[in-house]
Structure formats: structure tokens, C-alpha cells
Amino acid sequence: MFEARLAQSAILKKVLEAVKDLLTEATFECSDSGIQVQAMDNAHVSLVSLNLRSDGFDKYRCDRNLSMGMNIGTMTKILRCASSEDTVTLRAWDNPDNIIFIFESQNKEKLSEYEMKLINMDQEHLGIPETVYSCVVKMPSQEFARICKDLSQFGEAITIACSKEGIKFTAAGDYGNANIKLAQTAEADKEEEAVIIDMQEPVKLTFACRYLNSFVKATPLCAQVKLSMSGDVPLVCEYQIGDIGHIRYYLAPKIDD
């Protein structure tokens, strides 16, 4: 039997909103250690890696490893039926054909059950080698979301240049161009407002706005985002999910002809 309970469904609701633009379906790998998802978008340009540790759940039981193929659109619809304060329980039996979502209101007076059919999926797993990145930037997630949104008006791609001085985002298009520079924070009153750059060597990479704008849907999950970059390798854009895990997005760069 598999059973995982979260005291508040808000986290799971936010996770679904953070992946639904990129994924139509995904396999949820459930084991003793927790729930993991690794899935690429249809174009095989970006990859979502979600990790929810079992010890982050209020209750977690997984008697045997399960791979459950889920339709992300349907799952999103179901999670939208839960109030943020509702308790959510995911339940499945061994060799399941479906998974049950149980929402319980705070006063325990409303109990909702939604059963969703699982789907058989061809698994496509990518091995991601351990990488030491040339630049690792931590910055406020809302600021990153704002920059992606603002610069998307000027072009289809954003060039990110990181150096000792700071991080520079540039977009160029037919109507003009724009750039936004962020300096490393000298002294941040609050940790979540800091811009921190850990640089081994400068990096300049170009990425499609479309994907970056999908990644920033994870903004409500965490006040800070971590961007890891090295020359000519995919960007890693990471958001912590409270004390329970993280979501990482990998995005292949665009390169000049």
C-alpha cells in the first residue's frame, strides 16, 4: 500500500501549478525515501526533476516501490478542488490502476475523494552527470520572475551573463533591446532578498523565454531561486519546497549558428 499525507494541500497545489505548463504526463516514482518525478517537455528541451522526501510528509507509507503514470492536467484539476488548508492524502494499492486523492477540511466536516486513472507510460530517463557549475546565483524568486516577464516583451530569448560584478539579463528583438543588471547584495536585511553570486569563471548563455516563463510558475514555492550555469551546458533553475524537497528545471541553451 502507498499512502502519503500532507497537513496542507497548498504545497501540492503549488507543485502542480509549477509543472503543468511543461508536462502533460509524468511518472511518479514512489519508494520508501519519497516521491520522485523526472520528465522532459514534449520538445525535449527542458526537464523537470521533482523530489519530495518521505520525512517531509506528515504520514508516509510505501510498502513496495510504485511507478504511477499520471496525467498532469487531470491532477491539476483535482488539486484545484482542494482548499489550501485542507489535508491531502494520496492513496494507492499495490499494482494500482488508479490513485485516490482525499481532501479533508480543517474542521473535519468535509471529506472529498477523487479517484484518477493511472496511465501506462514509456519511461524516458536521462542521466544527469554531477556537474561543478562555473556560476551559482541565488536571488529572490519574485525578482527572477519579474525579469523573465519584462524581458520577454523584447525577444524570444534572454542572455544571462554572470561575472564578479553581478548578473546581467539581456533580450534583443526587432523593436529594441533591454538589459537588467543585478549587483551582488552587499548587506541584505533579509536572507530571502539577497543576491548571492558564487563564481569560478564568467558565463554567458542564452535561453528561450518560453521555458524560463514556465519555470517561474514555481515562484510561490520559495522566496529564493538558485541558478546554476556553466559554459555550453543546460541551466539548472532550482526552488526549494519547504522542508520537504525541491523542484529543479534543466534547460538546454540556445547557441549561435
Binding site: 528541451v45 536521462l126 540556445k254 549558428d257
Partner: peptide, 14 residues
């Protein structure tokens, strides 16, 4: 002109 690279150029199927 920029070209979009695919992830498989960097990561391997396992």
C-alpha cells in the same frame, strides 16, 4: 540566429 539545443546533446538516456 540562435538554435535551440536538445537536452540529449548533454545528458544520456538511462
Amino acid at each position: 540566429q540562435t538554435n535551440q539545443i536538445h537536452l540529449q546533446e548533454y545528458y544520456y538516456h538511462i
